[in-house]
Design a protein around this nucleic acid. Sequence first.
DNA 1: CTAGGGTTAG
Length: 580
Amino acid sequence: MSIRHAPIILLRNCKSLNPFSLYKITHNIITHNTHIHLPFAIAPIHQSNEPTLVVTLRMLNRLCKSGETKAALLMLKDLEKNDTFKANVTHYNIIINTLCKERRVNEAVEVYGEMMAKGVVPDVWTYNVLIKGLCGLRLLDEGRGLFGEMVEKGVAPNVVTFNILVHSFCKDGKVGEARDWFDLMWEFGCVADVVSYNILVNGYCKVKRVDEALSLFVMMSEKKVVPDIVTYTTLINGLCQVGRVEDALTRFGEIRGCGLVPDVIAYSTLIDFLFKNGKFDEAVALVKTMEEGNVVPNIDLYNILIDGMCKAGKVDVGEDIFRKLPASGLKPGFYTYNILINGYCKNKMITEALSLLKEMCVKRISPTIVTYNTLINGLCHVGRLKDALLLFDDIHKRDLVPTVVTFSTLIDSLFKHEKFDEALGLLRTMEGVGLVPNIVLWNILIDGMCKSGKVDVGHEIFRGLSSRGLRPNIRTYNVMMNGLFKNGKLTDANQLLQEMMIAGCMPDAYTFNIIIQGFLRWNETTMAVQFLRRMLDAGFSADIHTSINLVNLLATKELDSDSKEVLKTFFQHTIDTTVT
DNA sequence: CTAGGGTTAG
């Protein structure tokens, strides 16, 4: 037997080897026996007479699919070296795609450079994959740049190219630009398909512009693009998000009439929404309908069910579903554990939550940082700050990295325990490891500052937000307003209210309660009553503190008849809603 | 032999 035939015999006998081992062996033989050509060595793996091109493509693809990127890269290098067999654009595409999926976009771009240096001309697939990879890292400008480059090089974009771009801009919250890309495709001879519409419909829904989503739905029928189950699920989700449940249910009912069948995700969307809005019975009824329709629940639906049970205070039912998963051939992963742990925490059953953490470790399911964040939050919530800090120390031992959420939770709790110095110390630690506070943490900090008697520092932080590229949200305004009122800075508080309205941030129930209590505290009865009226008009109700203050007001103060009238309406309204 | 869309936890 000549050395030339060695690989053939070797590989014929090792069908059970995985692609990596096969290629490793092939690769080793080739590197040590330079006279053997790569295709010659690989072909026998498949014991077929297929053309070498197809064989090598399959080989590469199998390596990538089984997570053996290293071996795949090795193989590509060999293909590049080979002079009797030239690497084809698809070889490169497979590699570039894999690297992009692994978020190794830098390397993908390098391979792109290499292929051009080798004179291999990139095609539309190459660009689509790279644009998607870049946009996935939120490098939208680079993605846009690559689009320009492909056009310049004469590679025509297709509908997929535009879908990737529309989707990327939607994900970044830039629906306007997404719409521009959507409209642009016709100028390149492309026509939007059902996927294009679904992406944009979802984009509009995610920023709560549901009416524009609905008008796209109309546009679809004008353009004779038939909606599919994804279109319906997207719309239903959007309608739910803006509280239009009735419309959502109507759409759900339309599905079958279009010759479509609701799938698990369609059901999941509605079921989850029903649970989140306290419509427990309706949610359970829909699960039954689903099962009767022979739609098989998957792990995601079970996660939603477990979460829903926990949110309804029925953790034991949640645990029951959890324990019965293996019977349905499903095994809970860290995600499911996190949900159940969260359920126990929200129901203040910390012992059970902690024992689930132990169980994960025993079953070799690695907890994630979310697991720890959930437990730390749960411990803080029941006042066990010390234990929360102990758990915080465990994070490093598990090779996990704390996130801004981890720090925020602890800092918030430290502030609530009036441990101001420790809170600020932890903030410094956080910044020391290169984490940047987000708006949620700034809200906590502003609140903490105000409550430790440093309103001015809080106000300063607030003023500095825009220079950090952050926009105050409703909570930011609320904590700031609360701080200003509590410290008697009524003028500033008033000004802040104007500011938030101009910024398009509408006061919510919290805002009104803060304002009313704030004015009452400083005996500004007229203002308080004025805002009470505005609150009632806006459809919000008073919280318990505000209500008590208003009762006291009625009992102790001389009031003009107008004010009395407002208070009367308020109490009547409260009684009505309490009785029903 | 490669590219695009809908649901869930802190």
